[in-house]
């Protein structure tokens, strides 16, 4: 689907598969996931807990924790494969070309070092700057992320900042070597509700200003609606549906997405959490054959129990659902 583009996407993930070898067999936590992110674009990623969102992000930056491993597929950054690079090569990409923001700002920073030391070491690892230059860049970044009194605060330790302020520092760290892509894994989930919007707005503004694309993992459909350009819905390690954000929210094609959107009548309803659909997502050890959603799907039919649907184009979206198979569409719909 991307091969016809004139410009190659910034990030391209093809048929990514992440496995955990265990004593009782291999668990497939991410299965045949393909998507792309264009330069400067914000891709939202939603899905129930355990859908494989974080693992997809970790696989892209080469930080899967053993025994987890990439068992198939490829990850391309500006058309160069990065999933098979040496550890040292990948390290140089992390922070420099792909930045990361984690969920919990209270635990993301090393408590024994000042925020300035952590910024300076990151800047000096990636950019050819003197310590004094790195420090003034660090102060500049702290100012940019909205920390008052940056010249003074740079010498403070993480515990001297509030949660929201710490997440601002984390964002400064993610951006400090001008990466082209930021992977933000639930950047506001651990924060006070009253400051979540500020942080998301800041993240979006800074990424636009720095020309960085964002892969934004969240549970918050409201955030997706306001922030993302496109959205990917994940279910049981696979992408159920992906498409432009307005289309997916207004006209979801996959029965799982329809369920998710069920309780969101209007796009402008600000904070709307993912609704619970009847039943639970299967455990990795017991993923049903055929379509993984079939035990919970109101539209399930015979084919769904035997054959697994891949993403199929449905107008602007792509949905992994047999309802949209070209030949069967008319016969089984409704």
């Amino acid at each position: 689907m991307t091969s016809t583009r004139a410009n190659r996407p910034l990030l391209e993930v093809r048929n990514l598969r992440v496995e955990f070898p265990t004593r009782r067999g291999t668990l497939v936590a991410v299965d045949d996931v393909s998507f792309h992110i264009d330069a400067g674009e914000v891709l939202g990623v939603v899905g129930e807990s355990g859908a494989g969102k974080s693992l997809t992000g970790a696989a892209i930056i080469g930080l899967l924790e053993p025994p987890g491993r990439i068992a198939g597929g490829e990850v391309r950054l500006e058309d160069k494969r990065i999933d098979n690079l040496s550890a040292e090569h990948l390290r140089r990409i992390r922070g420099r070309q792909i930045g990361a923001v984690f969920q919990d700002p209270l635990t993301s920073l090393d408590p024994l070092f000042t925020v300035g030391q952590q910024l300076v070491e990151t800047i000096m690892t990636h950019l050819d700057l003197s310590e004094a230059q790195a420090r003034s860049r660090a102060i500049e970044l702290l100012r940019e992320v909205g920390i008052p009194g940056a010249e003074r605060r740079i010498d403070h330790y993480p515990h001297q900042f509030s949660g929201g302020m710490r997440q601002r520092v984390v964002i400064a760290l993610a951006l400090c070597a001008q990466p082209r892509l930021i992977i933000a894994d639930e950047p506001t989930t651990a924060l006070d509700v009253s400051i979540q919007a500020q942080i998301i707005t800041l993240l979006k503004r800074l990424c636009r200003e720095h020309g960085a694309a964002v892969m934004l993992v969240t549970h918050d459909m409201g955030v997706i609606a306001e922030t993302a350009d496109r959205v990917a819905v994940m279910y049981a390690g696979r992408i159920a549906e992906i498409g432009p954000v307005g289309e997916v929210i207004r006209k979801p094609r996959h029965p799982y997405t329809i369920g998710l959107m069920g309780s969101i009548p209007k796009l402008d309803r600000a904070v709307a959490r993912l609704v619970q659909i009847e039943g639970a997502m299967p455990r990795l050890t017991a993923i049903p054959t055929g379509c993984a959603f079939n035990p919970r799907c109101p539209k399930v039919f015979e084919r769904c129990r035997h054959e697994r649907p891949d993403l199929m184009p449905v107008e602007t979206n792509h949905a992994a659902c047999w309802l949209h198979a070209p030949t069967l569409t008319e016969a089984t719909r409704g």
Binding site: R94, F102, T107, L109, D110, F113
Partner: peptide
């Protein structure tokens, strides 16, 4: 196993810095 070590890796710090600057110092406390 802590988040700040994972985040230090995500920042692209060298193994030497991650292990001996951040991990060891926190270990010694």
């Amino acid at each position: 196993r802590t988040d700040y070590i994972k985040f230090a890796r995500a920042r692209g710090l060298r193994d030497r810095a991650v292990h001996f600057r951040h991990a060891l110092r926190n270990t010694l406390v």
